[in-house]
Lab assay of single mutants.
Amino acid sequence: MFKRLMMVALLVIAPLSAATAADQTNPYKLMDEAAQKTFDRLKNEQPQIRANPDYLRTIVDQELLPYVQVKYAGALVLGQYYKSATPAQREAYFAAFREYLKQAYGQALAMYHGQTYQIAPEQPLGDKTIVPIRVTIIDPNGRPPVRLDFQWRKNSQTGNWQAYDMIAEGVSMITTKQNEWGTLLRTKGIDGLTAQLKSISQQKITLEEKK
Rank of each mutant, 00 (worst) to 15 (best):
Y117W: 14
G159T: 13
D32G: 02
V12Y: 10
Q157F: 06
L56E: 13
T194Y: 00
T175Q: 12
L56H: 11
I138T: 09
E169L: 09
R147Y: 00
R143C: 03
Y67M: 14
F150D: 14
G114N: 05
Q123T: 08
I49N: 05
Q103E: 06
T206F: 07
A108M: 15
L56R: 01
K37Y: 09
F150L: 12
W181K: 12
G192Q: 07
A95T: 11
F150K: 14
S17D: 09
N52S: 10
P87C: 15
D165A: 10
L16E: 00
S201E: 03
Q89G: 13
E180L: 08
I130S: 12
G170K: 04
E91G: 04
T25E: 00
A108Y: 08
Y72N: 01
L10D: 00
L64F: 14
Y117E: 05
P124M: 09
E99P: 08
A96V: 12
L109R: 10
W161N: 00
Q80S: 04
R41Q: 06
F2L: 02
L76Y: 13
G106M: 03
D139R: 10
G106A: 00
A75D: 01
K83S: 03
L193E: 07
Q80G: 14
L11P: 05
P124T: 04
Q202W: 14
Q103Y: 02
D165H: 14
T20Q: 13
I130F: 03
A163I: 15
V68N: 11
Q36E: 05
Q46T: 13
S17N: 13
P132A: 13
K188Y: 05
Q62Y: 01
A34C: 13
K37G: 07
Y93S: 14
P87A: 12
W152H: 01
A22I: 00
V12K: 14
P66D: 02
K154A: 14
I167C: 13
A96Q: 12
M31I: 08
Y117L: 10
T175Y: 13
K154P: 14
A22H: 00
N44I: 14
Q115M: 13
T129P: 09
A120T: 06
W181C: 15
Y100T: 15
D32T: 13
Q203L: 04
A163E: 13
R4Y: 15
Q62S: 04
P124L: 09
Q202S: 11
M111I: 14
V77I: 01
A35K: 15
V77P: 11
A14F: 15
D61M: 14
I205C: 12
M173P: 03
D165C: 04
K102R: 05
L109N: 09
R90C: 03
I200F: 08
A73E: 12
K154M: 03
K43R: 05
P140F: 04
R50G: 02
Y93N: 02
Q162V: 14
D127F: 13
E99G: 08
A95K: 13
K102I: 03
S156Q: 03
I190P: 08
I137Q: 00
L109T: 14
I49E: 02
R57C: 06
Y28L: 05
I137L: 12
I200S: 10
G79V: 05
M166G: 06
P140D: 12
A34F: 01
P87E: 09
M166R: 08
T158P: 05
P145L: 07
Y55S: 09
A22T: 08
L30F: 05
A110C: 10
P27T: 01
P87I: 15
M6G: 05
K3T: 11
E63W: 13
L193Q: 06
L148C: 15
Q62G: 06
K204M: 13
F2G: 05
F39I: 13
G74Y: 11
T116D: 03
I167D: 10
A75Y: 13
T129C: 01
A95V: 01
E99Q: 15
L56V: 11
Y105W: 01
I49S: 05
A120C: 09
Y93T: 11
L207W: 09
A88K: 07
G142K: 07
I119F: 07
E33C: 00
Q115A: 04
R143V: 06
W161D: 05
L207Y: 01
E208S: 12
T183W: 10
G142M: 14
K29H: 01
V146D: 04
N179I: 01
N26Y: 00
P53G: 10
N44L: 02
T38V: 11
I49G: 06
Q69C: 03
N44H: 13
K3W: 02
L109D: 00
L101S: 11
N26D: 03
A73Q: 14
K3P: 07
Q178A: 00
I167V: 11
Q118A: 14
K83M: 02
E45Y: 00
T86S: 11
G182F: 14
Q118R: 06
V12R: 08
D165K: 14
K188T: 13
A34T: 13
P121H: 13
G114K: 00
G170A: 13
A21C: 02
Q118S: 04
N155M: 05
L5G: 06
A168E: 15
M166V: 09
Q48G: 07
T58K: 12
R147M: 07
T136H: 04
A163V: 08
P53E: 04
Y100R: 07
Y164D: 13
Q107V: 07
S84L: 03
Q162G: 13
L193R: 10
G142T: 10
R153T: 15
K128M: 15
Y72S: 12
T38S: 04
M31V: 02
K43T: 06
K198E: 12
V12L: 03
E122R: 04
Y105C: 15
Q69P: 06
Q157H: 08
T175G: 03
A22E: 10
I138Y: 12
E208Q: 13
Q107E: 01
I59N: 00
Y72R: 01
L207F: 05
Y117C: 07
A88M: 04
V146Q: 07
I167H: 13
V171M: 13
I119M: 13
L65N: 11
A85K: 05
W152Y: 15
T25G: 05
L64C: 03
Y105V: 07
A19N: 10
G74K: 15
I190Q: 05
A73D: 02
A104R: 00
I138W: 10
P66W: 04
V12N: 12
Y100P: 09
L125D: 15
V70L: 09
I200D: 04
A104Y: 14
Q107L: 08
D40L: 10
A18M: 09
A19D: 00
Q162R: 02
G106N: 15
V8N: 00
A51T: 00
L16I: 12
E180Y: 04
L101N: 01
G142V: 08
G192E: 14
G189T: 10
V68A: 04
V146L: 07
P66F: 01
M166W: 04
Q103D: 03
M173E: 04
N179A: 02
V68S: 11
L64D: 15
Y112V: 12
A35D: 02
A85V: 12
A163K: 06
W161K: 12
